[in-house]
Every structure is written in structure tokens, then in C-alpha cells.
Simulated scan of single mutants.
Amino acid sequence: MNTRKMLRLLAAAPLLLGAGVAGAQQTYGPEDEGRRFSDGSRVVCEEVEVAQNTKDPNRIAGTATGAVIGGLLGNQVGGGKGKKLATVGGAVAGGAIGRNIQGNNQERRGQRQVETRCERVWR
């Protein structure tokens, strides 16, 4: 390896090593609550209620079902290019409505658990 290549490699090494360190995120637990840092930030913890055991957390079933129904209903409207536009619009609207309905049902039926979550805040 010639000198020029070696110098380039040595110059890039801190950047490569720093990228790995910058990507790591510090996690904090309840034992860190109230901890203060020199930059004025501190660790704050709060108890949040989270849903447990949802089979479809991304609401894919509700979105897909709503999109199919909306597309079928939209297909019944208009003719030509208007019919295509109505089909697509119905599918989009139906997907959004289906996702919302499934989310509301999951909220109503879901099991809840309280967790303590801590984060560093700059206030």
C-alpha cells in the first residue's frame, strides 16, 4: 500500500469509528430518574399505559378489508376514467376507515399494562 492510500485510510478512520458511536443510543431506567447532565438535560421517567397482545399491531387486516370494500363501492360510481378514479378513491378512503375502525376496536378490547419509560430531556 502506498503512502497516499495509507494517509487517506488514517484520515477516514475517526469518521468511521465515530459513526458507530453516534448511532448508539443511551437507554435510561427508573434508577436514573432525576439524573442531571452538564449540558442542562436530565432524565425524566413517566408511567405509560401500553397495549399488550395485539395480534395485528399495524392494523393490516382492517386496512385491507376497508380498501377492498371501498374499492368495490367506488367501482359502482361513474364510467370511464371517472370510474377508475372513484375506485382508487374508494379504496384509499375505505383503507383509512378500516384502519381507524380496527384501531378503535383494539383500544377498546386490548389488555393494558403500565410501564415506566425514561428519557433524557433538555428543558
Rank of each mutant, 00 (worst) to 15 (best):
Q26F: 07
S38K: 09
K81S: 12
F37S: 01
A61C: 03
N100I: 03
W122Q: 12
E49P: 02
A13P: 00
P14C: 06
R112G: 05
R59Y: 13
Q113P: 00
V50H: 00
E119H: 11
V43D: 02
A24C: 06
G29D: 11
A22G: 00
E119D: 10
N100V: 05
Q76M: 15
L73W: 10
V114A: 13
T63R: 07
R123N: 10
R8H: 08
V21E: 11
L73D: 06
A11N: 06
V92R: 02
A22Y: 13
I60L: 14
R36C: 05
A96R: 01
E49Q: 12
L9F: 12
Q106T: 12
G29C: 02
Q111M: 09
E47P: 03
R35Y: 01
G71H: 03
K5C: 01
D32K: 08
G29K: 08
G90H: 05
E119F: 07
E107D: 14
V43W: 02
G82R: 08
A12G: 05
I69W: 05
R117I: 13
A91R: 09
G79A: 15
L9V: 09
C45I: 04
N100D: 07
S38C: 01
Q102M: 14
S41E: 02
G95E: 08
G78W: 04
L16C: 04
D56M: 03
G23Q: 14
V92P: 02
Q113I: 08
A61R: 14
G18A: 15
P14W: 11
E47D: 11
K84F: 10
V88L: 12
K5E: 14
N58A: 15
E107T: 13
G34W: 05
A67V: 01
K84C: 00
T65A: 15
R117K: 15
G98Y: 09
G78M: 05
T116F: 05
E33D: 15
A91K: 05
R42T: 06
N75K: 09
A91E: 04
M1Q: 07
G29L: 06
K81P: 13
G110V: 04
E31R: 08
G110E: 01
V121L: 13
K5W: 00
V48D: 03
A22P: 01
L72M: 14
N104Q: 14
Q26I: 00
G80Q: 03
A91F: 05
V114D: 10
V92A: 14
G90T: 04
K5H: 09
K81Y: 08
E47N: 12
Y28V: 06
A11Y: 09
A12T: 07
G94W: 02
S38W: 01
R35W: 04
S41G: 10
V88T: 08
S41D: 00
P30V: 10
